[in-house]
């Protein structure tokens, strides 16, 4: 059984190697959060003198300064962000699912036209289009409203969602719908009761990716909102920036405070989320 022995040895090496690589990668990924956390416990001057080291005298000063100062209006901005993000995600998921499914399955004249149109949506360089977008919104009187940001967030989030759903649905065997139709299920009924659960993994993925990009989005929020009361979290965070000097540890403390809600959700439900993503296997 010499052969088997070397095989086992090789397998052992491979296992060690793969675990090692994955751990290095995973740790490098979590490091920024850890670094932000311990840096937020430093004072600005300590941080500037040594930005990578651990704090010798950790302090919660940055947190108390932020939380005790009403001028930073973090509470209001978290509420604005939460509302915008939640509504955007709901719409992105629903629309991506509907459009992605229809584009993948239903033959109609404009099918490829729509497909290409949504593809184009991913190619828009938003940073240099901010002014035209502002002018269009301004002329239509829909800038600076509580719902203003939903439009760009949903519209610019949709293409990716549609593509993922479209690609995913292609891997789902079409017999399912055919069988359902034979049983007398209507299109809508099949769509929501049969296809929707099957697409859950990809929809969870879309939601996860989009939650963070909506929560962190900056450019649209800056240009389309003027009212301080409507500002989202990333905009409120600019209140921590000075013209010539940035208090990075304080900014990090603020970022962590504002990311906390979704980070906690992500960690608390990571198992369900991952299961949602991985456990939707369809027998082919």
């Amino acid at each position: 059984m010499k052969n088997n022995g070397t095989h086992k040895l090789k397998k052992g090496f491979l296992g060690v190697f793969m675990n090692l690589i994955l751990w290095i990668f995973s740790l490098s990924c979590i490091f920024p959060i850890i670094w932000m956390f311990y840096s937020s416990l430093k004072e600005k001057r300590v941080f500037n003198a040594d930005i990578i080291g651990l704090p010798s005298e950790p302090t919660l000063l940055n947190y108390t300064r932020i939380l005790s100062n009403p001028d930073y209006h973090l509470g209001a901005s978290i509420w604005n962000s939460a509302r915008t993000t939640l509504l955007s995600i709901a719409m992105i998921v629903a629309f991506s699912f509907i459009v992605g499914y229809i584009l993948s399955r239903v033959r109609f004249k404009l099918n490829r036209v729509l497909y290409v149109m949504f593809l184009m949506g991913m190619l828009i360089p938003i940073h240099s289009l901010l002014v035209p977008i502002y002018i269009v919104f301004q002329k239509c009187g829909i800038s600076n409203q509580w719902f203003t940001l939903l439009l760009p967030y949903v519209s610019f989030g949709l293409p990716m969602g549609i593509f993922l759903v479209e690609g995913f649905v292609k891997t789902v065997p079409v017999d399912l719908e055919e069988a359902a139709a034979i049983d007398g299920s209507s299109f809508s009924h099949t769509l929501w009761t049969i296809i929707f659960p099957i697409c859950r993994p990809i929809l969870v993925t879309v939601a996860i990716i989009q939650v963070f990009s909506c929560w962190n989005e900056f450019s649209f929020a800056l240009v389309l909102l003027k009212d301080v009361g409507l500002q989202t979290v990333p905009l409120a965070l600019t209140q921590f920036k000075g013209q010539f000097a940035s208090d990075y540890p304080k900014q990090m403390a603020a970022m962590l405070i504002t990311m906390a809600p979704i980070l906690v959700l992500y960690f608390a439900f990571s198992k369900q989320i991952i299961n949602g993503m991985v456990a939707g296997a369809v027998k082919g």
Binding site: F25, I33, M36, I208, F212, M277
Partner: peptide, 23 residues
């Protein structure tokens, strides 16, 4: 052959959630 799958699945996504200024 790989252990702690959930950790690797969860952690890898983190960097794309962090603001560009920190990265």
């Amino acid at each position: 052959l790989v252990f702690c799958k959930t950790i690797h699945r969860t952690f890898g996504f983190f960097p794309s959630t962090i603001a560009a200024v920190c990265i």
